[in-house]
């Protein structure tokens, strides 16, 4: 176990044992984790993404920590993004699984930090090469000029489990997710998103502007049979949206390609 802020440790070099040998991980951990967080690297946390960043403004990242018991929180971050932390996910009654798209400002480690029951954090991730500018080019909807018309529109779909396991919930919200790094466009982003069912908290997300424009999220909530979910989101300007997503066809048993 390593302390992210070891009293004697230098803050300007790689963290000992970092399999990615990132130049500034100790500093990044100070920014994205609670003060004094204890961390270790753990292969049971699966951070998956494509082999190349085809679009540095919309890079899909999936974290699967279902092999880790007692997950409290999952944080997705990129060491060399100007806004390192993309999302903090609390699975109250959901699998320790999240898929989301983030921005990449350059070649960077993309990681997950997973908090477990004793308050320590497990780290995993990988390097991804990327063209620059994912955080500093204007959002597509700003260029097209239609961002305000579609603001906070929500698309969603719920796949109930066919076999008593977790459901799948896909959410796609329209939001420019302005980083504040583009001339004359102040930062403005979707800040929180909560999923509930029958008054039970299923999942909470705290997002930053390094989440990709028009956030797209997949979660695996635990639902009772026939239940729908309520989703409430709020952006940094205080704009709220509340929607309900009802279950449709269950998850197909086979996921084989045709």
């Amino acid at each position: 176990m390593l302390a992210a802020r070891a009293a004697a440790g230098p803050l300007d070099g790689p963290l000992p044992g970092d399999p990615l040998n990132s130049p500034n991980l100790p500093v990044v951990l100070q920014l994205v984790l609670p003060e004094g967080a204890r961390v270790r690297f753990d292969d049971r946390v699966k951070v998956s993404f494509p082999a190349i960043a085809e679009n540095q403004r919309q890079f899909p990242v999936q974290v699967d920590a279902r092999a880790v018991p007692g997950v409290r929180r999952i944080i997705i971050f990129a060491d060399l993004n100007p806004i390192q932390k993309a999302v903090e996910f609390t699975p109250h009654a959901a699998e320790a699984f999240i898929a989301i798209r983030i921005k990449l400002d350059q070649r960077t480690p993309v990681r997950a930090a997973v908090e477990v029951a004793d308050g320590s954090w497990l780290l995993a991730g990988g390097w991804i090469d990327a063209a620059g500018g994912g955080c500093s080019a204007p959002p597509v909807s700003r260029v097209k000029g239609d961002w305000s018309q579609a603001l906070m529109q929500v698309r969603g779909r719920l796949w109930p489990s066919g076999d008593g396991g977790p459901a799948r919930l896909a959410l796609a919200l329209r939001h420019p997710m302005d980083t504040g790094f583009v001339d004359n466009i102040p930062s403005y982003w979707l800040e929180t998103l909560a999923v509930t069912a029958g008054g039970r908290r299923l999942a909470e997300l705290a997002l930053n502007a390094s989440v990709a424009e028009d956030p797209s999220i997949m979660l695996m909530p635990h639902l009772r049979e026939g239940e729908s979910v309520a989703v409430a989101a709020r952006d940094s300007g205080g704009l709220d949206v509340a929607v309900r997503v009802a279950g449709q066809s269950p998850i197909p048993p086979s996921r084989e390609a045709p």
């Binding site: 494509p50 082999a51 698309r155 969603g156 779909r157």
Partner: peptide, 23 residues
């Protein structure tokens, strides 16, 4: 590699076309 690139090219539009609007 090309499948993953194609997913990147088409997925956001597929979401817009195939995920029901709930708001």
């Amino acid at each position: 590699l090309e499948l993953q690139r194609s997913v990147s090219h088409y997925w956001p539009a597929l979401e817009a076309a195939r995920l029901p609007r709930v708001s």
